[in-house]
Every structure is written in C-alpha cells, then in structure tokens.
C-alpha cells in the first residue's frame, strides 16, 4: 500500500539513473565531437551494436547484391571508371539506413563493415559525412547517358 513511499525514500539516496549529455554545449556536428571537450564520458555501447557503416572501395566488385537486399533502398549503384575499366560501385546514404546489417551479411567480398559509432548528426542531410563512399563517387563516377536513360 505504501510501497512507493519507501521506494522514493530509498531512491533519494541511491545513485541517479540519468545519463548526462557528454558535452556542455551541443556541437555543430556530432560526427567529430569526440575531439572536443567532453565533461561526461559517453555510455559504452554494447557488444553487437550496429552503427555507422564503412565501405571498402578497393575490394568491392560492384555486384549490386547489397542494393538488392537493402530494405530502405539506402544503397545506390553508380557507374564508375576505374583503371579505364567500366564497372559499378555503391554509395550508402546513412540518413536512410536502418542498420539492419543485411548488406554486411550478403557482401561476398566483405567490402561493407559495420562499426559501433553512433554519432551521425549533421546539418546537411546529404553531406559528405552522411554518405558513405561519396568521396570515391566524386572521383570515379562517369555520367553515362545511356545509363541515366
């Protein structure tokens, strides 16, 4: 009947459950926040947490399986020219990604890997920090009109 009364009196002396925001002020871009002044260390993410994707451009063969299974259609195939050979490569839009790890599981060359990083806030939705592989796209993409159709 008075369980809550005892509970609150107990709680006033026990350790508080609040997780403080790691910084005093919100940074413009949390992808790089770890370099700046931290007042509360962030909570350690658990084993098996699925965070930001990383893409290995060199080992990718452009088979396109990942874009086929991606439930959110977050992986886009584009035509690229590498060593004067026409092939395909992908970019991953993290703003659409649901972090289901399907692409990591299906990739035959293990070109896509998953990390534990969860800091993905930015001002630009399609900024370079939120499109994995965009730096290669700028370098290698060829605008093929037949492909665009």
């Amino acid at each position: 009947m008075l369980g809550m009364v005892y509970k609150v009196i107990e709680q006033i002396f026990s350790k508080k459950s609040t997780n403080c925001f790691p910084m005093k002020y919100i940074p413009n871009n949390t992808t790089q926040y770890l370099n700046q002044g931290i007042i509360h260390p962030p909570i350690v993410v658990k084993e098996g947490f699925r965070g930001r994707l990383e893409y290995d451009f060199q080992s990718c063969t452009g088979c396109g399986l990942c874009s086929k299974v991606c439930p959110a259609n977050a992986i886009e195939l584009y035509s690229a020219e590498i060593n004067s050979k026409k092939t395909k490569r992908v970019v991953i839009y993290l703003t659409r990604c649901t972090f289901c790890k399907e692409c990591v599981d299906i990739c035959p060359r293990n070109s896509i890997t998953i990390t534990k990083s969860f800091c993905m806030a930015d001002y630009k939705k399609y900024g370079n920090s939120l499109v994995v592989g965009s730096e290669y796209r700028q370098q290698f993409e060829i605008k093929d009109h037949a492909d665009v159709e």
């Binding site: 658990k46 098996g48 289901c100």
Partner: peptide, 29 residues
C-alpha cells in the same frame, strides 16, 4: 510520474540485454 520513471528505469535493463545480443534496443533485425 514517479511510477512512470520507476518502471521505465527498470525497463532499461531488458533493453540493454536486447541491445547486447540483437544489436538494437528496438527493431532488432
């Protein structure tokens, strides 16, 4: 509200557990 805070506080334990072996707190995949 105290009960609300209390139950959501103890719920963290099961969510941590789920996060550890499915990878997410909800939408486990």
């Amino acid at each position: 509200d105290t009960l609300f805070m209390y139950t959501w506080n103890i719920r963290e334990k099961v969510l941590d557990c789920l996060e550890e072996f499915t990878g997410n707190r909800i939408n486990y995949g």
